[in-house]
Amino acid sequence: MNSILGIGKYLYAVPFAIFGFFHMTNAATFNEMIGPPGGVAMIYITGICLLAASVSMLIGKFDKLAAVLLALMLILFALIIHLPNAMNGDAGQLLKDIALAGGALMYASGFARDNSVIG
């Protein structure tokens, strides 16, 4: 059973690497969809952050810090980008980011191996 539960780390971290890759390769498209705030530069920064969080969780180095920062980023996305759409009746992306942030916080509290930065 533990071997099945161990797959969860990969099922959570790998999609963030893919999202980060998509941000890096399709920044102009993301900018058209989202627009401000930040523009294309912020989309690249977001892609780098997603890739870094994914790698950190996969290798277990600074993974607790990465998971907490990922949760913070996802909550900011939910409030800044998706809340206006939710006010117009489309709450799907808002709820997705809140759920992913909750998963990142659960990872940080229960599964992270590196407690060197955040005890």
Rank of each mutant, 00 (worst) to 15 (best):
A66G: 11
L65F: 15
P15R: 02
M24Y: 02
P15V: 12
F16D: 12
I43L: 11
V40L: 05
G60M: 04
H23L: 06
L65D: 15
D63Q: 10
F19C: 01
F62D: 02
M24Q: 08
T25K: 08
M24C: 11
T25Q: 10
I48M: 10
G39H: 01
K61C: 07
A17G: 13
G60A: 03
L11Q: 00
D63R: 05
C49N: 01
E32W: 05
P15C: 10
L11T: 05
Y44F: 14
A41T: 15
I43R: 00
K61I: 14
A27Y: 04
I34L: 12
G35F: 13
N26K: 03
N26S: 11
I59W: 05
F62R: 01
T25G: 12
A67S: 12
E32L: 13
N26V: 05
A66H: 05
I43A: 05
L51A: 08
I18P: 10
A41D: 14
S54G: 11
G38Q: 08
L65Q: 13
A66Y: 08
L58G: 04
D63P: 15
A41M: 14
I43H: 02
T25M: 15
A66K: 02
T29C: 06
I45G: 03
G60H: 02
N31W: 10
D63G: 13
S56C: 11
A27G: 03
A52L: 11
T25E: 13
L51Y: 02
C49P: 00
A52P: 04
L51G: 07
G38M: 10
L58P: 07
H23P: 05
V14T: 07
A53G: 02
A53Y: 00
K61R: 07
S54P: 08
